[in-house]
Every structure is written in C-alpha cells, then in structure tokens.
Design a protein around this nucleic acid. Structure first.
Length: 597
RNA sequence: GGGGCUGUAGCUCAGCCGGAUAGAGCGACGGUUUCCUAAACCGUAGGUCGUGGGUUCGAGUCCCGCCAGCCCCGCCA
C-alpha cells in the first residue's frame, strides 16, 4: 500500500493547496508546507487511512477543524484521480478525515502481488553498500548466550536490507587481537606449548579452560600481567612465533563458530580486529592532524565534548595506551575509516550498523563522536549503534546454567530442539499419528531453532529479554510454532487439491474475513520499509503474527476448497499470497518454514 | 557523583510523525469439531500507562523534576 499512500498524500496536499491557497503558499515559504498527516487508519472501521491534518490547522486558520476537513474533502472529491482511488471520505470525531480505498483497487493490488517475488516491496534505486557488524565472538572462547541476540538480530537486519536490494557486508568483527591474546599465549607457553605450534593439539574446550586460567592469573599476578602485555606488543609487532600461535588458535575457534552459523543458517564474513592492525597508526596521525589528540598520564586521548567523568572533567577516549599499545577504541576508529573509505582500502559504505549490547552505548557514542569531529563520517552517511538488552532467565537475572556458569550457545540450541522433539512426539502419540524418524528430526530441528530466533526477534530489542523455553515453544500466542502452523495449514489446502498456482482473472471477495486478509497482506511493503529504517525486527514479527491471526480467522470461518466456483479462485489466491508473505517474512527473520508439522 | 536504558493488565510484552474508547499473548473463566491439521476459532473479566509538574486543540508518546530497577564511567572488548 506504500504506492497508494504516496499517491493519497500528494492528492491531499493538492487538495489543501486548493482549499486554503494563501495559507498553503505562506507555509511553503516558511518551508513548512501544510501536512495532511496521512497515517494508516487506527481501526478497521475507520477505513484504510486517516488524515489528521485538519486538526492542526484549526488555530492558524481560526476555523473549526470539522469545517476545515469539509473544505479539504470537497477539494478531494473534485479530483478524479482521487475518486477513482477512494470511496467518499468520511469526517469523524473532532475532524479526522477517514479514507477507504475502493475494493476493486485493493483486489487489483493483490493481483499485482501474486507471483511477484518482491511482494510489492520496491527495490532501492541507489544501492550503496551497508555494513552490518554483528555476532562478534572472541577467539579462544566458545560462543555463549551473550552472542545470541547480536547474531540473530544482526542476521535478520542484514536479510531485510538485502531484500530491499542493498549490497550488504555482513562483518564478523571477531575478538582476535589484544590483551586477551597476550594472556592466553603467555599461559600456553608455560603449560601447553604444543598448542602454539601444532594444529589442534588441544581441543577448544581445553582452550577455553586455559583461557579462564590465564584470565585468573592476569587478574592476580602482576608479573604475569607484565609478560602478557609484552606478548601483545610482540604480536602487534609481527613476531613470527607469536603470529603462528595466534593463527592456530584462530583457525580452531573459527571452525567451531562455523558449526553454529551453519546450524542457524547465518552467513558472515570474518574480518576480525586484527584486520585493522595496519591502519591503527594512521588513526593516531589523523587525530593528531585534526588537533584532537591530547597526552594524558602517558596515554594518547581524545577528550569528549559534553560527557563528564567522576570529577567533572571531560571523559577521554584512549586511543593509545601508555605502553604504546592500541586498544579497542583505536580499532573501532580504524574500522569506521575503512568502512566509509573508498576502495581498494575501504568498503565505500554509506550506512554502518553495529549490533551490540546496550552496555556498549557509551563506548560507541564516544567513538562516533571522535569520528565525527575528525571528519571521518562522510556527508549523508549513517553510523548507527543498534543496541539490545540482556538475556535474562525467568528469575529476571542474567541467564546462567543451574551450576551458575555461562550458557553455551550450542547447549541452548540443543535444548530447544530436544524440547521441540519431546513436544512433537507426545503430540503424535496423542493424535495417533505415525511419522518417520527423519520427519521428526527435521520438524523438531526447524521448530526448535525457529522458536529461539523468533522469541528473540519478536521483542523490542532495546529491553532486556526474558528467556523461556516454555514460552517460545508454546503452540499458541506470538510464537514461531503458531506462525509455522499457519503456513502448514495453507500447504494442507494445496495438498488436498487446491491449486495455489492457478491464475485467475478478476479477483472477487465478498466476506469480511477476506477483506481483512486482503488489507493485512497489503501492509507488507510498509512494514519492510519501517524495519529498514528503524532496524526493529519485532515490527516484522508483530506483522507476521497479526497476518497469521487474520488468516486463521479466515481459514476457520470461510471455506476454501468447498467454496463456490466463483469464490474458489480468489480464495486460493489469498491463500497463496498469505503463504508467500509468511514464508518471505519468516525468511527475513532467518526462519525456514514447513509443509507439515 | 556523571551518563545511558527501562517502568503500560496477575505474568511476558506491543504501542509507528503526538490523534478517536490504551492493544496483544499467556494465565483465569465460559463456549465452538459430520467440513481444508482444534498446534485453531469465538466470547468474558482484568489499566491511576512509576510519580509530580509543564507544552499542546489533543500526551502512554514531547520537555523538566522526583522515585525504583538494570547497565556503563582511563589505558579489557
């Protein structure tokens, strides 16, 4: 309906110009043209759209809002293009103008979407690269629940942007550099030197244990700390022994990460922190040239504007430590320059999106400010932190295992699939259905992972997220199983003889449930546009849930296969477009669908 | 101390550029199956939108104060 909304907006503006020529001209001169405030109708009984602009004009025009609305409507009715599109507008309440699109126009919109891969979503015209930076686990650690949201949300946002036609660079900014490596390598040199020059000498689980030990020593032992720092400097200086050890550790971790990504069907290009190593000195030079750099306590800093620390002094972003080493702020700045920079040493991006937890908001705000002041953000480019809240257990505290450890992502996914399998088996039992082992594994795997993804995505990402297997796997409510079931129902119609591919001429609808479904289906383009702009996947989830509800109502109350000969093709067309929209929408959430479950 | 986020029904949460009587789901209670998968559908009950001011024709939404919870605050990422 975006095209129709756009057309209506223009028609409304023209009508306002004709109704109030002097005020319209004056408003345009003040570069605040009269706004019809066109919005989707807040309730179905108000039609398809509402224009609230008359209310705002009451004061400047010194007229009653309903009188203003009447004048605008009179002008609209004089416009043949408008009367061709809409029924007679209704003025309601204090002065709302309610607009209802002609049924035949809605039916024509549905027709146009049948068989359209894009489902009415326009492709972007100017396609500049978009960077989505997400997931970002640390080398030598296992992926855990802390990586869940970034990975799932980032992937979904990338999919939506790709669907709109943007060239998307999915970057995995893995933690493969810095102090942590100094600690690990120093520790391994002492306790497991094999791991540093032989591939797979220890497995990843051991490596994680070594890492934990190293971290403990680092925190407790000053001498170890110093050696570790020296090790980092060696690594950053390109010492061959350190580099080889580092390479082996990275390979090993990378393979483990890939297993998770394969399982979740997530595509990512690894470009870790180390990638930006050669560009770090230029960051310092650049900041020096921009006269932003200040030496403080031996460290190179940029002091932030508008952000005060404990003592009321401006807060610094440290870009070079007193020992000469660089840190994450330096890397992030180098990454910003690279991503906005021109090829070959740059990505030429116009939008860069970071999907990381909300706890890093201060860090990014600081880094973005420095980049801005250094002039590294091109005119019109967008640099956005997409924050999300913590994953909490049902007790409202940070999610932990019963033993109090961090939950491994692998275990979390396993449990979701296991629970889905248990549910499925007991259901099959109850219904006295018999299915192959292959069917059970496939359905349980799909439903389990879909549930994990959907539960996360369906929540506004800003707030903390309460993780609950029971809720996400529930068969009713705003859950993946409920949505998947709607798709299964349509597949059932196709199996039972409904030819969804049949092409019909004129679509015709008679039942309110059909019209409700038509109107819901036509909202898809606006929802995608909104997610692209706001980067909130939960908006897409809400839409798909509502679409499923409207479809289930239709399915329950209106016969499809047993419909009259005249109604049948149109109803099959609705089923087809619903299935396509649900599959496409779920696909943008990274969730595959099933024909039977 | 400074900064950020959050506070909406018993629970988990939506709420779009400020717009009409604040919405879902779960849970509770009641109903629906000779018919395309009842994993569904229909209905009932449930609200001082943390709180006090302000702006506005109109505030859950914007501004200011306060309260509560979570997170961050110099050489980890």
């Amino acid at each position: 309906m975006l095209r129709i909304a756009h057309r209506l907006d223009l028609q409304l503006r023209a009508a306002m110009d004709r109704a109030f020529p002097e005020q319209a001209a004056a408003a345009r001169q003040a570069s605040q043209p009269l706004d019809p405030q066109l919005a989707p109708a807040s309730k179905p009984e108000f039609g398809d759209f509402q224009a609230n602009g008359a209310l705002a004009l009451a004061k400047p025009l010194k007229q009653a809002p309903r009188q203003i609305a009447t004048a605008i409507v009179a002008q609209l009715q004089a416009d043949p293009a408008f009367t061709d599109l809409c029924l007679e507008p209704q003025i309601a309440g204090p002065g709302f103008i309610n607009l209802t699109v002609r049924p035949e126009r809605l039916a024509a919109e549905v027709s146009a979407r049948l068989g359209d891969q894009r489902l009415g979503v326009p492709a972007v015209e100017q396609a500049a690269p978009v960077v989505v930076d997400f997931s970002s686990p640390n080398i030598a650690k296992e992926m855990h629940v802390g990586h869940l949201r970034s990975t799932i949300i980032g992937d979904s946002l990338a999919r939506v942007l790709e669907f709109r036609g943007h060239p998307v660079l999915r970057l995995n900014h893995v933690g493969d550099w810095g102090t942590q490596f100094g600690m690990l390598i120093t520790h391994l040199k002492q306790v497991a030197p094999d791991a540093l020059d032989t591939a797979d000498a220890v497995d990843l689980g051991d490596l994680v244990a070594f890492y934990r030990e190293a971290k403990k020593r680092f925190d407790d032992d000053e001498a170890f700390q110093t050696t570790s720092r020296e090790e980092v400097v060696k690594l950053q200086g390109g010492d061959p022994v350190s580099l080889k050890a580092w390479g082996l550790l990275c390979d090993q971790s990378r393979r483990e990460f890939q297993k998770i990504y394969d399982r979740l069907d997530i595509r990512l290009n690894e470009r870790g922190e180390s990638f930006y190593n050669p560009f770090l000195p230029a960051v310092i030079d650049g900041l020096k040239d921009a006269e932003l750099l200040v030496t403080d306590d031996g460290a190179q800093c940029v002091f932030l504007e508008g952000v005060q620390g404990k003592d009321g002094k401006p807060l610094p972003v440290i870009v070079q430590k007193s020992d000469g080493g660089f840190n994450y702020a330096t890397t992030d700045l180098a990454a910003i320059r690279y991503r906005f920079g021109a090829a070959p040493d740059g990505d030429d991006a116009r939008r860069v999106i970071y999907v990381t937890d909300a706890g890093q908001a201060n860090h990014f705000a600081g880094v973005f400010q420095v980049a801005q002041r250094a002039g590294w953000i091109p005119e019109g480019a967008r640099l956005e932190h997409v924050p999300f809240g913590l994953v909490q257990g049902e007790d409202g505290k940070k999610l932990k295992t019963r033993a109090g450890d961090t939950v491994r992502l692998r275990d979390l996914l396993d449990e979701a699939v296991e629970r889905a399998e248990t549910d499925l088996r007991s259901r099959l039992n109850e219904e006295e259905r018999s299915e192959s082992e292959e069917f059970i594994q496939h359905v349980a795997g799909t439903v389990g992972l879909a549930a994990v993804k959907y539960a996360d995505l369906s929540q506004n990402r800003i707030t903390n997220y309460q993780f609950s297997f029971d809720r996400m796997l529930a068969l009713q409510g705003n859950t993946a199983p409920y949505l998947l079931y709607a798709v299964v129902r349509i597949a059932g119609i196709a199996r039972k003889g409904g030819d969804l591919e049949v092409l019909t001429g004129q679509l015709q609808f008679s039942e309110p449930q059909e019209w409700a479904l038509v109107r819901e289906l036509l909202k898809f383009d606006a929802v995608i546009a909104e997610v692209e702009e706001e980067l909130l996947p939960n908006r897409l989830c809400s839409y798909l849930f509502e679409l499923s509800q409207v479809f289930n109502r239709f399915y329950d109350q209106v016969p499809v296969l047993k419909a009259d000969a005249e109604a049948l093709p149109s109803r099959l067309a609705l089923c087809r477009l619903t299935a396509d929209t649900l599959k496409s929408g779920l696909g943008l959430l990274g969730i595959p669908t099933l024909d039977r479950m």
